[in-house]
Simulated assay, not measured.
Amino acid sequence: MLFDCERLTLARRLRGLRKNQLAQAVGTTPKAIGQFEAGVQKPEEPTMRRLAIALGVPVGFFQAGRSPVSMDGAHFRSLRSTSQIERDQALAYGRIATDVVAVLENLVDLPEVDLPEYPVSPDEIAGSGPIEAARLARKALMDQPGPVPHVVRLLEAHGVIVLVLPEAAERVDAFSVGIHPRPMVFFNPAKGDYWRNRFDAAHELGHLVMHADAEPGEKVVEDQAHRFAAEFLMPAEDISGELPAKPDWERLAELKEAWGVSMAALLYRARTLGIMTETAYRNAMSTMSSRGWRRHEPGTAKSLEQPTMLTRAIEIVGQAGTGRDGVADRARVTRADLDLLVPHR
């Protein structure tokens, strides 16, 4: 039976297992698992079946799959707050997502990738690059003033694949990968915050627009994406006249609903634009902390913006005769993993 060592590594990472954990589950040694994954040794068929059972995949999963897509350039929000195994698991989901997308690309027309590029040097600490990049992106993607109605829908309309990570990867923050042929953005549903989710989306868009060649995880690069997101969602030209100079909570609550950003983001924006003094800002944040608003701000709870492009694509190919099982088979992923990545509506 054919065996592709990279597919074993992919399956192990998908399940968030270390080599010693997988070895224990199948009754072998971590060294043997390492040899299987390195291609030094091929597992015997009984061992291969035990591997498949332990990893929740069919034996056929280990056969040569689709062309590997590198995820080395993934932009994670903070490399320190997540373990390597957690990032590996999230990237494994990204890897099989590329296989699903490749299958769908052959069956249905997805929106053309249409993102502007505005490279900003990772050495630029306080320059105007991120602001200019955000202004360019807004003009290219929506070309209208005011709030962004639906950030996820905007990304999808311009060819970006947006996916929600399965709960197994709950400690991983949002991340993006500018891979060929389609950029991808992944969200974490465990955060469960509509306001933060929108800011995350704009932050990851910043990476896609500015950081094709930047080293992922660098603090300056993350700060640049943060500044991009603030300008993209709250353009200085449009919002400056609306922001209060002092923490007017009723006014901030109104702006939060209108602009789709948190009160904390609005306060920070007021400070960075010089509308609110440093002292007023710190007092406002202190008040938010004392009231427990740093964790749960007041306001109407809203459902996260949900991606629909791939769900709709699967519905279309299903109507043409290729159901979810057929898509999963062609992509060489399990039906369960497909349903996790692309839920039913």
Rank of each mutant, 00 (worst) to 15 (best):
L8R: 02
G321T: 04
P122R: 10
R330Y: 06
M184S: 07
E242I: 01
T29H: 15
T334S: 12
N106Q: 15
M309N: 05
L115I: 07
G56A: 09
L233P: 01
M285W: 10
L165G: 00
E305R: 03
R95W: 04
R198V: 06
E170I: 07
R271Q: 13
G94Q: 02
A301I: 01
T334C: 04
S289G: 05
L110G: 06
T279Q: 10
P166A: 07
M142W: 11
G56K: 09
L154P: 01
D114Y: 06
P235C: 05
A168N: 05
P58T: 07
H180L: 14
D88S: 08
D143H: 14
V220Y: 06
A52Q: 13
V103H: 00
S67W: 11
Q84F: 04
M210Y: 03
Q144F: 06
I33R: 02
G94S: 03
R330N: 09
M276H: 00
P30S: 04
A202Q: 05
E124D: 15
A92H: 00
D213V: 12
A74K: 02
R135M: 15
V160K: 02
L136K: 08
P119T: 08
A11F: 06
G73K: 11
I33L: 09
M288T: 04
T272R: 10
A134K: 07
F228S: 05
R15L: 00
M48T: 14
E204Y: 08
T308R: 14
A174E: 06
T300N: 13
I125A: 10
T29R: 14
P147W: 03
M234C: 12
M184G: 07
A265Y: 00
P116N: 12
E132R: 14
L310N: 10
E257A: 14
Q63D: 15
L340H: 02
D329M: 10
L136D: 04
V185T: 09
A74F: 01
P68E: 07
E86W: 02
H75L: 06
A265G: 13
R335C: 07
R153D: 07
G146M: 03
E117P: 01
D337T: 01
Q21A: 13
P147Q: 10
M276E: 02
I314S: 03
G241K: 14
I239G: 00
A253V: 03
E250T: 08
E44F: 05
S78A: 06
L14N: 00
N283A: 10
E117C: 11
A264S: 10
K42H: 03
L79F: 05
A52P: 09
P130R: 11
G94E: 03
A265P: 00
S290D: 12
H207F: 07
L252M: 03
Q63G: 15
A133Q: 05
K31S: 13
S83K: 12
R12S: 06
R138I: 05
I314T: 12
S70F: 08
